[in-house]
């Protein structure tokens, strides 16, 4: 939970945000203009795009696959395993003689995939539950809030450790656990927004027209909270990437030979005493670039969408 999130979850924010009636198309157009005026955000979008392209097409440039072992260099990693254009290992080799370039491509793939799929799914699920809790209130709301409180009090590592102990680890399972851990993302904020919104005239009007609750939530309230969800997602995605990396570092995340930034950093960290620093440097650099970009994109989105500092 970052302090930015604390702000988004605050009551003041809910009140301010509900004031904004974002039914007009100009809201998004304005936001786009504001976002693209933010130089850091634009550069970050470009960087992230490069990372995504790297993750998708990087394998085409690799001379080796990420699982293959280069027997000719294995055993001499320390002396000959350093990055080199000549032998086709642009990022060097890991301690098992595998091509680091291919592994970093694969790691980027996993981390970005997990980050975006698990992050955005979590926010969507959390938002839907939050919307229902806010809309219906009463008992359902109480149960959801109880679960929310408990969830926040349980260190997430427990989920990963326990899950891995029983069900092993695959990419799909990893994504599932992350969603299980993060289903509360966006819940509170959407709940707050919907609670503010549900007594508005336009919702009453929709009810008068005989629309059912489902239609009201999705057709009338959802567009008004969409932007909040967008801001929230921009903060959850880097957090999920971080979470995935941490658990993979600990060995309860992604399974060998598949890899991710966290797993690669872990390997790099465990071998750095041997002086093979490239094993740590490349994945760490990619991770850092992704985090920086996502940070500034999130910042830009917040500035562009959040009514607080706007006049």
């Amino acid at each position: 939970m970052t302090s930015a999130k604390t702000h988004l979850n605050s009551k003041e924010f809910a009140e301010q945000a509900a004031e904004e009636m974002i039914t007009s198309r100009s809201f998004w157009a304005d936001a786009r203009v504001r976002f693209f005026k933010n130089r850091m955000a634009v550069v970050s979008v470009f960087m992230l795009l490069c990372l995504v392209l790297f993750a998708i097409f990087g394998h085409n440039f690799a001379k080796w696959s990420y699982e293959e072992i280069d027997w000719s260099i294995l055993g001499k990693i320390k002396t000959e395993g350093a990055p080199s254009i000549a032998n086709g290992h642009y990022f060097g080799l890991d301690e098992l003689g595998r091509d680091m370039f291919a592994r970093v491509v694969q790691g980027s793939r996993t981390s970005l995939l997990v980050g975006f799929v698990a992050g955005i799914t979590s926010v969507i699920i959390g938002s839907i539950i939050g919307a229902m809790a806010g809309y219906y209130g009463g008992r359902f709301d109480q149960i959801v809030m109880g679960m929310y409180t408990i969830w926040l009090a349980v260190p997430y590592i427990i989920f990963f450790v326990v899950w891995q102990a029983f069900f092993g680890r695959s990419l799909a399972q990893l994504i599932m656990v992350i969603i299980l851990v993060n289903w509360t993302a966006g819940l509170l904020i959407v709940r707050g927004q919907v609670m503010m919104m549900k007594n508005r005239e336009f919702v009453d009007a929709a009810r008068m027209l005989g629309l059912n609750d489902f239609a009201i939530i999705f057709r009338h309230i959802a567009p008004n909270v969409l932007w909040v969800v967008v801001i929230y997602s921009s903060m959850v995605v880097p957090e999920v990437i971080m979470m995935e990396s941490l658990v993979s570092f600990l060995g309860v995340g992604i399974q060998e030979p598949n890899t991710s930034w966290g797993a690669l950093i872990s390997e790099g960290a465990s071998t750095m005493t041997f002086g093979t620093l490239w094993q740590l440097a490349y994945p760490a650099a990619f991770f850092v670039i992704a985090q920086v970009s996502l940070y500034y994109i999130g910042d830009g989105l917040r500035d562009a969408l959040d009514p607080k500092d706007r006049r």
Binding site: A269, V288, Y295
Partner: peptide
């Protein structure tokens, strides 16, 4: 701190 979480910082 956002960019260098503990598992990058510690190494």
């Amino acid at each position: 701190s956002q960019i260098f979480p503990n598992f990058v910082l510690a190494p």
